[in-house]
Computed example of a mutant assay.
Amino acid sequence: MYRLIASDMDETFLGEGHRVPPANLEALARMREMGILFVPSSGRPYSSIMDSLSGIDPALLQGSYVISYNGGFINRYGDDRPLLRTVMDRASLEQLYRYAVEHRICMHVYTESGRIFTQFLNELERGYIANLAGIEELGDDQDALAMAGGEEFPKIIFMDPDFDAVKRLGERLRPSLDPELVDITHSSNRYVEFVPHGVNKGTGLAHLAAMLGIDMAETVGVGDSANDLAMIQAAGLGVGVANASDDIRPACDLILDATADDGAFPELLRRIS
């Protein structure tokens, strides 16, 4: 019997426009009946995740938790004070930011409070993030590090609509980064993500399971892209939605027939019951 389902948000639990498909709302109610804890797990900040869930009856998630910043933060649902907090090495973050400014790379810079500074956005990315909370688009001559004041940064990501190009960018930068300080992953077929070393959704799930006294064999990890891979591998059952990227499919114990836009969680519950 599975006791906890940890799910990526964008392109997994959320469909087009970062909205919850009606079928997944029904699945949340069914999970409550089954005694299964549903835990959102995202690369986005806690506040942004909560905004995407704002239309859901809070009773469906009462007593649950939220894993954010790729596993670097854990919060109780409804409480913005993190139980776990991990931020980036400041020098590494500054190096990546200055590189992106020099080369005018479309990027998101995340602060620990949930502010998301974006810069050098292309029109595709501007449309993709249009209804996400916490976005602050900066002008080309503004400085995100200065704008953040004394805040620390959990992550920074670069975007390119050519996914192969953004992967090459990450590999080009890898030798200049200390592997004991920074890890690199990918998401949404558009991003290369730079996060603190050892931070991933798998470690986030393991930390939460330990807090709750839940065996990892009793957990399910659901995702669609590379930044979900560690969670899929760590969980007792690793699941990909039908739109999962090719690089995570071999690691999945189960690939669903339904896509994120369909609302895949009723199928998931049927197949694990």
Rank of each mutant, 00 (worst) to 15 (best):
Ala217Ile: 05
Ser68Lys: 07
Arg90Gln: 11
Leu25Ser: 06
Ala217His: 10
His108Cys: 08
Ala226His: 09
Gly15Ser: 13
Asp178Tyr: 06
Arg19Cys: 09
Asp253Arg: 11
Ser64Met: 09
Arg3Asp: 07
Thr12Ser: 11
Gly204Ile: 04
Asn227Ser: 13
Tyr128Lys: 08
Leu229Ser: 04
Thr86Gly: 00
Met216Ala: 07
Leu28Arg: 00
Leu132Pro: 00
Glu112Ala: 14
Val239Gly: 04
Val222Tyr: 01
Arg190Gln: 03
Pro82Leu: 12
Glu171Trp: 12
Met216Cys: 11
His18Ile: 05
Arg168Asn: 12
Asn200Phe: 02
Pro22Ser: 10
Phe194Ile: 05
Arg19Pro: 00
His197Asp: 03
Lys155His: 10
Pro58Arg: 15
Ser187Ala: 15
Ile214Gln: 01
Glu26Gln: 12
Glu218Met: 12
Arg104Lys: 15
Glu33Tyr: 01
Ala144His: 05
Pro266Asp: 12
Met31Glu: 01
Leu177Trp: 12
Asp141Ala: 15
Asp246Ser: 15
Ile255Leu: 15
Pro82Gln: 14
Asp164Ala: 15
Ala264Trp: 01
Thr111Asp: 05
His186Phe: 14
Tyr99Ser: 01
Arg190Asn: 03
Leu60Cys: 10
Tyr69Thr: 04
Pro58Leu: 14
Gly71Leu: 08
Met211Gln: 11
Glu16Gly: 07
Gly223Trp: 06
Val39Asn: 01
Pro250Val: 07
Ile157Arg: 02
Pro266Phe: 11
Pro22Leu: 09
Tyr128Gly: 00
Leu138Asn: 02
Met31Asp: 02
Asp162Trp: 13
Val182Cys: 08
Phe194Arg: 00
Asp215Asn: 09
Phe117Cys: 03
Gly204Ser: 09
Asp143Lys: 06
Pro161Trp: 04
Met231Trp: 05
Arg90Thr: 10
Gln95Phe: 15
Gly55Pro: 07
Pro250Ser: 11
Leu84Lys: 14
Gly149Trp: 03
Ile184Thr: 08
Arg32Lys: 15
Gly221Pro: 05
Met147His: 07
Gln142Met: 14
Leu237Ala: 03
Arg19Ala: 12
Pro22Asp: 11
Ile74Tyr: 03
Gln233Met: 13
Glu33Phe: 03
Ile49Phe: 04
Met107Glu: 08
Val109Ser: 09
His186Cys: 05
Asn189Phe: 10
Leu145Arg: 03
Leu145His: 09
Pro179Tyr: 14
Ala226Phe: 05
Glu11Trp: 02
Ile135Ala: 01
Ala23Thr: 09
Ser48Arg: 02
Ser92Asn: 10
Ser176Met: 13
Asp262Glu: 12
Glu136Trp: 06
Asn131Gln: 13
Met9Phe: 05
Cys252Lys: 00
Leu254Val: 06
